[in-house]
Simulated assay, not measured.
Amino acid sequence: MSISNTTNFTNPSDFILLGIPGLETAHVWISIPFCAMYAIALLGNSAILFIVKKEPSLHEPMYYFLCMLAVTDLVLSTSVVPKALSIFWFNSRQIDFSACLTQMFFLHCFSVVEYGIFVAMAFDRYVAICHPLRHSTVLTNLVVAKIGLAVMLRSGVLVLPCVLLAQQWPYCRTNVIPHSYCEHMAVVNLACADTRASSYYGLSLIILVTAMDMVLIAVSYTQILRVIYSLPTKDARLKTFETCGSHIAVILIFYIPALFSFFTHRFGRNVPLHIHILMANVNLLVPPMLNPIIYGVRTRQIRDRLLRLITHRDT
């Protein structure tokens, strides 16, 4: 199919994804680490879900939230990576207009879901450490389910306007998206209309969600640290803090590259496009790959259960 740069159309039947502009000759080589990271993410997050399901001692709020995080990571990476690999391997750049909007919704919706799950996990650690005697009564299975539902509803309600606005813009400049997936502003920038509503809404959404969630997480950990430093012995403080270590590491792995990618897309005009696109893809691959590894290594219950599974199969 030929790539149209000047054809006038208000409702394009499809878009053309370029992959990583400027690095087309290296697409095959880039696909190798991408595919490897995706495979590790699939295996690791599926293992987390399997272990928590099979181990009754892990049927606790902390591990339920971890399962929500694993499902979110699977959806996030799967919404983007298979199409990117088809571009890298088969030069399959065409994507249907409705499929593009669907990918946009799942990508941004589950990114916001991930933010919400981090807040829920911070709340769980706050209750477990600051009010341990009330943990089982405050975070019941029903409450955990309601928190998960609230996180999903919040994300869907906040992200849906982005997709609806993108759907109603007239596209008469080009149908070529200089990206490997349908990122919100990468699509909206193709419209031949005043798209400030989309731009302002997207910017406000990420700033408000990020700021609100980071404040809630910071408040939770401020209270947690106060309790930790009030403990009588160094060993007790270290052991208590270790229960939060995995969560803090996962938050940093997700937030830092996500914020870098977001603000680079809007304000980093001097950053080469291929660097930005690479970072955007890595941001969707590295956290899903590392999250189960971090929790598997640092959480004794998951590590022990995994070792038992491996040794049982070997015998």
Score class of each variant (00 low, 15 high):
residue 46 S to N: 15
residue 86 S to I: 05
residue 178 P to A: 10
residue 48 I to T: 09
residue 149 L to F: 05
residue 36 A to H: 06
residue 118 F to Q: 07
residue 305 R to L: 11
residue 245 G to C: 12
residue 135 H to C: 10
residue 37 M to K: 08
residue 314 D to Q: 15
residue 256 I to C: 14
residue 168 Q to N: 08
residue 235 D to R: 13
residue 125 R to Q: 00
residue 162 C to W: 12
residue 132 P to Q: 10
residue 11 N to K: 10
residue 212 M to S: 14
residue 64 Y to R: 09
residue 82 P to V: 13
residue 109 C to M: 09
residue 161 P to G: 05
residue 125 R to V: 05
residue 12 P to W: 04
residue 121 M to C: 03
residue 54 K to I: 10
residue 130 C to Q: 15
residue 7 T to F: 14
residue 109 C to Q: 06
residue 222 T to F: 13
residue 286 V to N: 06
residue 195 T to K: 02
residue 282 V to L: 13
residue 35 C to V: 10
residue 234 K to S: 09
residue 314 D to V: 13
residue 290 L to C: 03
residue 180 S to I: 08
residue 113 V to G: 07
residue 279 M to N: 14
residue 97 F to S: 02
residue 162 C to R: 05
residue 8 N to Q: 12
residue 243 T to D: 03
residue 216 L to V: 15
residue 7 T to H: 15
residue 28 V to A: 11
residue 221 Y to R: 00
residue 13 S to Y: 13
residue 188 V to L: 06
residue 92 S to E: 06
residue 21 P to T: 03
residue 168 Q to L: 14
residue 193 A to F: 12
residue 287 P to A: 04
residue 251 I to L: 01
residue 52 V to F: 00
residue 282 V to I: 07
residue 219 V to R: 09
residue 283 N to Q: 12
residue 170 P to E: 08
residue 11 N to T: 12
residue 36 A to W: 01
residue 55 E to T: 03
residue 91 N to Y: 12
residue 149 L to Y: 04
residue 249 A to D: 04
residue 167 Q to V: 06
residue 293 I to L: 08
residue 4 S to M: 12
residue 42 L to P: 02
residue 162 C to Y: 13
residue 48 I to Y: 03
residue 101 L to F: 09
residue 109 C to P: 11
residue 213 D to C: 04
residue 228 I to E: 05
residue 257 P to K: 06
residue 49 L to E: 01
residue 165 L to M: 08
residue 108 H to S: 12
residue 280 A to P: 07
residue 127 V to S: 08
residue 196 R to Q: 04
residue 149 L to H: 12
residue 203 L to D: 10
residue 79 S to F: 01
residue 127 V to A: 06
residue 178 P to L: 13
residue 71 V to T: 01
residue 127 V to F: 06
residue 259 L to V: 11
residue 285 L to T: 00
